[in-house]
Write a protein that binds this DNA or RNA. Structure first.
Length: 425
RNA sequence: GUGGAUGUAGCUCAAUGGUAGAGCCCCGGUUUGUGGUACCGGUGGUUGUGGGUUCGAGUCCCAUCAUCCACCCCA
């Protein structure tokens, strides 16, 4: 166990094994999202604290307890973004795009929340987010879900479940909320301590309490989905119809809730049972109230975000890429020729490992450990002749080639095998 | 913020309160111009940290820190 500096709590070092998975996820996202004509944006990690205070509200203690925020040397109250949507709305408004019609954006990057770490929950984590500004219809919600589905399908993930719900709108939710609070208050005795407190602080959350006794008591609790206004009911019906047309499988889960008021209508989660208590892999929905809340013109919008770390945990290991060629240099006199040969091979498109000098045996062991396909041996004889000894590590066959011939041999071999998954015999 | 579990070599793990070990990895050798296998040798530890009990603590007690899991919260 190393002394000295250690990483701070709740953050992870992205070592090569992990970065290979991240990259696979990022590449899938870029490819799938661009087929749906979404454009990538890269937004600041630092934002004014007030942006999130405004979007999240003071209702919960998220801002005071779970955001990294500080006053900088200029006296500005700054924070590390805890999520992507508010910053995207801010950037979209600041760029004047609210007059430009619907906008389709996606982004990926680190987010920060000062929570107690646990499985699938870090203090610095990465999200892939998608926002679609200026569209109001259920068909767009379905498109969003189809895109999320395609993304996860591209990653080869199975055993996932899409759950959808409707959260209503400012026209129908307040009345429902009152009805729910009244219903819960009558049955408070049957609920756990935390739920009793939640009746006032966050009544919707009672519905997805994890305590079994609560779930039993809540079996007949009123659900938003049964109390939607006409417009919301029509929207939800339209969503289900479009999902049916797209053959995207889903289940309606009336207990999906959101903590904040700017959410409306469609809410969805894609969950797995393979990650313990943090099983939501992708979540999103409609936030028709947020743009106005942040000072822009009333603008409907829908989006989702997925956690890169959780997705990575569901993915199989990604094999490391092996170098194509190991260069073995023997003797000081051959060194200049060997160095130039390595560079020439790289310029020719091969990935080349310098085996580090020393005995031939040692350098071959390095080459073998790294899984190279070929070894180029350059000693005094080869240097004098302007050639190299070219050994195929699979067959063991060795011959004398010029550098140009070696490049050709290397390229030919890599065309016929899957690059980067050099199999060891 | 609350609760539980766990901290011994780079990694995975042993060690009745009585000399801190093994396997893997790494380095070297058997082979100073040829890899995998095998064999031989070697590097590497304030047992997370700080106190306490004891003739003696990796082991028992207290505190603290870290990791993991769950609760809370989940934008």
């Amino acid at each position: 166990m190393s002394k000295g500096f250690r990483r701070i709590r709740g953050v992870h070092d992205g070592l090569p094994d992990m970065v290979r998975r991240w990259r696979r996820i990022e590449e899938a996202a870029r490819d799938v999202f661009s087929r749906y004509a979404f454009a990538e944006v890269r937004l600041p990690v630092l934002e004014p604290t007030a942006l999130f205070v405004r979007s999240i509200g003071e209702a919960t203690d998220i801002v005071s307890k779970e955001m990294y925020h500080f006053v900088d040397q200029g006296g500005d109250d700054i924070c590390l973004r805890p999520e992507g949507t508010a910053g995207a709305v801010r950037a979209w408004l600041q760029a004047g795009l609210s007059r430009a019609g619907a906008t389709r954006w996606f982004y990926m990057g680190p987010m920060f929340r000062r929570e107690r770490p646990q499985k699938g929950r870090l203090r610095q984590f990465q999200q892939i987010g998608v926002e679609w500004f200026g569209v109001a219809g259920p068909v767009e919600d379905a498109e969003m879900l189809a895109m999320a589905h395609a993304f996860l399908h591209r990653l080869g993930l199975d055993g996932l479940r899409l759950e959808i719900n409707s959260l209503g709108c400012p026209a129908c939710r307040p009345a429902y909320r009152e009805r729910l609070v009244a219903w819960l208050s009558e049955r408070a005795d049957a609920l756990c301590d935390t739920c009793r407190e939640r009746i006032q602080s966050n009544p919707m959350r009672v519905l997805d309490c994890k305590v079994e006794a609560c779930q039993a008591a809540l079996a007949d609790a009123p659900e938003m989905i049964a109390h939607l206004c006409g417009d919301c009911a029509a929207h939800f019906a339209g969503l289900k119809e479009a999902l049916g047309a797209l053959e995207v499988a889903y289940v309606v889960n009336p207990r999906i809730v959101r903590g904040l008021d700017y959410y409306s209508r469609t809410a969805f989660e894609i969950v797995t049972d393979r990650l313990g208590a943090q099983g939501t892999v992708l979540a999103g929905g409609r936030y028709d109230g947020l743009v106005a809340e942040l000072g822009g013109p009333a603008t409907p919008a829908v989006g989702f975000a997925a956690g890169l770390e959780r997705l990575a945990m569901l993915l199989p290991e990604e094999p490391a890429e092996c170098p194509d060629v190991g260069v073995v240099a023997l003797g000081d006199a051959a060194l200049p020729h060997a160095l130039r040969a390595a560079r020439a091979l790289r310029e020719g498109g091969c990935s080349v490992l310098w085996c580090g000098g020393g005995s031939a045996r040692r350098q071959f062991k390095v080459a073998d450990r790294e899984g190279v396909r070929f070894v180029a041996v350059i000693g005094e004889d080869e240097a004098a002749a302007g050639r190299l000894a070219w050994k195929d590590m699979h067959s063991g066959e060795q011959r004398t080639l010029t550098v140009d011939e070696a490049i050709k041999a290397c390229r030919a071999a890599l065309r016929s095998t899957a690059r980067g998954i050099a199999s060891r015999p």
